[in-house]
Design a protein around this nucleic acid. Structure first.
Length: 215
DNA sequence: CCCATGATGCCCT
DNA sequence: GGGCATCATGGGT
């Protein structure tokens, strides 16, 4: 799989949010390779976007990452226990980012299941046995970080590294992505209504599930 | 399927 | 001190 080059990320957050759909998100941590196909994203458009951490040009130790050049990981803690993985977009000092909201598991599902079981120390997590379970397995920003082993130690890292990268898996997206409102940003006033959430069509997702199963 | 709720730590949206 | 770019669970429908 071909890692996406640095130039890929040097575009605005809305374009990048669309472009990342269907790409493979890969981590290779301590010899454990896990990956998933990006199925859902949200754009956060920085200074002008009331939902963005960088709204109004806010700079803090946390948001500093968003001001880096495109192609970095922006990872932060949410609700006290989950990490959110964002891809920094655009050129330096333009603080836009794309939240990865869902991936379809590709490689290393057994390792993902182990990580999820470890995270919530009670129940064992069974590997998905059908398409519905596969789609529910790593389909949220917190869950996919658990599955891929992403925590805040990855903040600011470039996304063409050895242990974290995004790659072109050769998957062809056939349909336009679905557009919808972003999730859980009620505080964002008019920005809460912008259709800045992008999802692969059901047909494309079904194809990707089969792709994963063929390996 | 839907909705309500608790867990939990950091950042100030 | 308020409130989060969330998830799992347990109930009802």
């Amino acid at each position: 799989m071909e890692k996406l080059p640095r130039d890929f990320y040097l575009r605005d957050g809305l374009s990048l949010a669309r472009a990342l759909l269907g790409k493979a998100f890969v981590t290779n941590i301590d010899g454990v390779l896990t990956s998933g196909i990006i199925s859902e994203t949200e754009a956060y458009m920085g200074v002008i976007d009331k939902a963005s951490h960088a709204y109004g040009g806010l700079r803090s130790s946390r948001t500093e990452t968003m001001y880096l050049e495109g192609g970095r990981a922006y990872v932060y803690l949410i609700y006290g226990m989950y990490n959110c993985m964002n891809v920094v977009a655009n050129k330096e000092d333009v603080p836009e980012a794309v939240l990865i909201r869902g991936v379809v598991p590709l490689d290393g599902i057994s390792h993902m299941a182990k990580r999820r079981a470890e995270f919530r120390k009670k129940t064992e997590i069974a590997e998905p046995r059908n398409r519905k379970e596969l789609l529910n397995f790593s389909n949220g920003p917190g869950k996919l970080c658990i599955c891929l082993g992403i925590d805040r130690s990855f903040d600011k890292r470039v996304l063409w590294g050895d242990d974290i990268y995004i790659a072109d898996a050769g998957i062809v997206i056939e349909n336009e992505p679905l557009l919808s409102k972003r999730v859980n940003i009620d505080y964002a006033e008019e920005a809460a209504d912008y259709l800045w959430r992008f999802s692969l069509s059901d047909d494309d997702i079904i194809k990707i599930c089969q792709y994963g199963g063929e390996r």
